[in-house]
Design a protein around this nucleic acid. Structure first.
Lengths: 323, 323
DNA sequence: GTTAGTTATAGGTGTTTATCTATGGGTTAC
DNA sequence: GTAACCCATAGATAAACACCTATAACTAAC
């Protein structure tokens, strides 16, 4: 039996012949001519090396080998139907994987969207990668993930990005800090204090430092710390003051004080970023659609800046990835 | 998803790529060139309408859709392997159907062969048809069965036949018959008695009547009866005398007497007959082979005339039956 | 920076295919 | 015996396929 050159079309034709018990009838149903069907069956028989149909008493008769092949075909087509169902789910975004890499700070925000999404589509795998800006940029370079989350979008080629959330920065000081109860302070007032900063390259730090530079200000003292959490706790315990994303600060957290800095309103935005040259999984596409429709619902409405519609010129790309 | 033009070869190639994780390696293994494999995969992806493989970090990576397709293919090939096993059994004659039609008298003989054969190949279906000569000839005409058993072979076109057993006819009389204890009788001595005969067309009767005709003898009285059994019982109960196949008479049956007719040794042979224009099932072929090898073992050796080797120019014919 | 290894693409070729139309032989039904 | 079916075969054609070679582009390793 040599199936190499047997196509599924051929099996379809064969099955129809078995079902109708007639070559002519099959031809009519499949909009073919009778000789075509005759020939197809002949080819199939040659491939199988066994008679499948024969004529007895002027009637088409299915041999044992033919009947068994018919059953086999039923099974096979069943499997492909299952596969088609799988594809449908995949296309509907109900299944698959959406790999997301985000910078540290985003972990205060994104889970609010991921939670509801994951509940809606429990079969979608959502592996998350969290790293500092440099690490996430690396992953982007290598195209390891479907979606990247940055504040301060990287202006790389092959990148497309869209905002979804405002990202205001706040100055925080310990409760017992001299400025803690001052109603309005200026940026220059802060320069004399020790600043606790994230590592170089962090979007928050970049934003802050570029503001300082543009105003010709210089910090008198700074300490580098690896995480927002560490900085928040360090500030609360009096180690210094800091600039942190509003989203990092719980509303009811009274272990520090937020300053009202009247002459500096630092802010960036949170972006979903994707490579334009990579295939975008259905799950990823679907998650973005979900985000577009539900950011207002699941994130603080006052900060939402939903520009995700900009992304939806994503179309399915097949394998020719390198183009 | 449009599988119509997808051949099994294509799926094979795809599976190899998934297994090796490399297009080039697959090309080497399947003795193809790398572009060929590349192109095949591309075609398959177009047919499925979904990316199956993509390149991540310079490595070929199977997508969810690809992996699922791979699993589907495994299943599908599994089914076809099962089917191939089935065909193998079929070809070995271990499975299938061998439809046999025989004339009444043969039912005293054939079961002795069919029993052992059926025990050897329990999966072979052996539907038997039993009828008088005219009925079996009809079946032959319509090609309803694989094998026919006749004494006195029909000289039809599209028929091939081979002997396997001698079929001597015996004259039997009731125990209290005047000739019952006569050592040697002549055929003419019998003409005055009432003969119990099978229906017209029966091989036994044909043989007997042609013998009478050639000798210019005429029966004085005869009664027609439908079965050998009926005749045997009727003879035993004194209703008349009869000519019957030796094989119909049990060796230890003492309810009648076999005459020693010195001037008439009527005999024919038992034949397996087949149509030459019909496909011969593997099971039928196999049964004939079995018969050829085992007639001596299962039938009375003294009567065996094994000429079945004459049949074994049977070769497999595909559907073009009408030729 | 050269080499050896990927994969994709372009272009070419002989073969196979999926079809068709036309025809012939056979059967069934009237 | 004619009409209306059935199926098989022959012959033709355009498309698709299965391959190839040659080449380009990219990466990893030396």
């Amino acid at each position: 039996m040599d199936l190499r050159h047997i196509s599924f079309r051929l099996l379809e034709v064969f099955m129809s012949v078995v079902k109708t018990g007639s070559i002519s009838e099959t031809a009519r149903r499949l909009h073919l001519t009778q000789p075509t069907v005759s020939l197809q069956i002949k080819r199939l028989q040659e491939a199988v090396g066994e008679p499948l149909l024969l004529i007895q008493q002027q009637k088409l008769h299915v041999t044992d080998a033919g009947l068994e092949l018919f059953k086999t075909c039923q099974q096979v087509f069943g499997h492909f139907e299952d596969y088609e169902d799988f594809l449908t789910e995949l296309n509907g975004g109900a299944r698959g994987r959406c790999k997301i890499a985000m910078v540290n700070t985003a972990q205060y925000i994104l889970p609010k969207l991921l939670g509801p999404y994951s509940n809606l589509h429990p079969h979608v795998e959502l592996p998350l990668e969290i790293g500092n800006r440099a690490e996430v940029l690396d992953r982007f370079e290598r195209g390891e993930d479907d979606i990247y989350v940055f504040s301060h979008p990287p202006s790389l080629e092959h990148a497309q990005a869209a905002r979804f959330l405002h990202n205001p920065l706040e100055f925080i000081v310990p409760l017992n800090h001299p400025l803690a109860n001052v109603k309005a302070v200026k940026l220059t007032d802060l320069m004399q204090y020790r600043f606790l900063l994230r590592e170089n390259g962090s979007a928050t730090r970049m934003l802050f430092e570029s503001e300082l530079q543009s105003r010709g200000l210089v910090l008198s003292d700074s300490v580098q710390m690896a995480s927002n959490e560490a900085i928040r706790v360090a500030v609360a315990s009096g180690m210094g003051i800091a600039v942190l994303s509003r989203h990092v600060l719980a509303k009811d957290d009274t272990s520090f004080k937020i300053l009202n800095v009247t002459d500096a309103h630092l802010a960036s935005h949170w972006y979903f970023v994707m490579r334009t040259d990579r295939h975008i999984s259905h799950a990823a596409r679907n998650f973005l659609k979900f985000a577009q429709q539900h950011v207002e619902q699941y994130l603080d409405t006052q900060w939402v800046r939903n520009e995700l519609h900009n992304l939806h010129n994503l179309d399915l790309k097949l394998i020719n990835i390198r183009c």
